[in-house]
Amino acid sequence: MASAAERLAVSDQTRRNWLLAAPALILLLLGAAGPLLVVVAYSFLKPGEFSGVTWEFTFDAWIGVFLQQDIFDETWGLADAHLAIFWRSAKLSVLTTVMTFVIGFPMAWFIATRPANKRAIWLFLVTIPFWTNLLIRTFAILEVIRNQGVINSALIGLGLIDEPIQMLYTDAAVLFGMTYVYLPLMVLPLYAAIDRFDFRLAEAAFDLYASRWKMMRRVVLPIVRPGIVAGSILVFVPSLGAYVTPRVLGGGKNMMIGNFIELQFGQGRNWPLGAALSMLLLIVVLGALLLYVRVSSDRAGERHG
């Protein structure tokens, strides 16, 4: 169908585009995506004596993720310690997502309803903490809640308590820290969705006798749903893989899966188990992302249909 000149122009264009993208792709293959494939291989090997692996194929690491063998009677049972860590990771990640939504939605709404020239400033105020070192922000929370920290010092100084309240190294501390750290990730996509919301629809809802909350629930929330899903994924995924926040605020006992993985490469000296755990985490995260893609493309389909 196409003339020779046309075909030449198209294939020329495609080759040029791929050449332009090639350096980025090679860099990513070497420094990010490629090594992930090696992790898959490692999860099927035996641990080395001190660290690393010995090159012997086995499913031990994957079995060890969920099951453990009793040292005395050699029976297999569920690896309770592992499951407790998975459960804590899942629970804290879901709670973090809920908390950031409860706080983030009013923020996003408030910002989106400011005059156009003020919105950029408010957004900038949300963005600064987002790009500020995660370690510094977690460290700031540590300074506030530790036993010699701001809150306890103030309460003791005021004579309200004699002994510091133990806030650090609890699940609540980790939850608070993660909510604090990931809040901007919820606010930004919610804002983007609410900003596109046509407020004449709200007027129409009020005109048809909706109360404020009914208008919110029946009109706004369904329309901004893609923003809610995007924000939830953006918070849930890094929460699940969190490492710094649970390490600093949760301490050694309140580990999440990220810290548990690190442990296998440090004191645990079980690289294959660490590799298998990493893959498990990656699979769950990619599953969540696929779900997101499906939800958002469903929406796109509805619009075209």
Binding site: Y42, F265, S278
Partner: peptide
């Protein structure tokens, strides 16, 4: 292949950092 390139470039944003870190440590 454009969609593939998009996905490949954004890949570091999709994998949890701890997983990438472990992968790099191993290699």
């Amino acid at each position: 292949g454009r969609t593939f390139i998009y996905a490949a470039i954004n890949q570091p944003l999709m994998a949890p950092e701890i997983v990438t870190a472990v992968a790099l440590l191993i290699v």
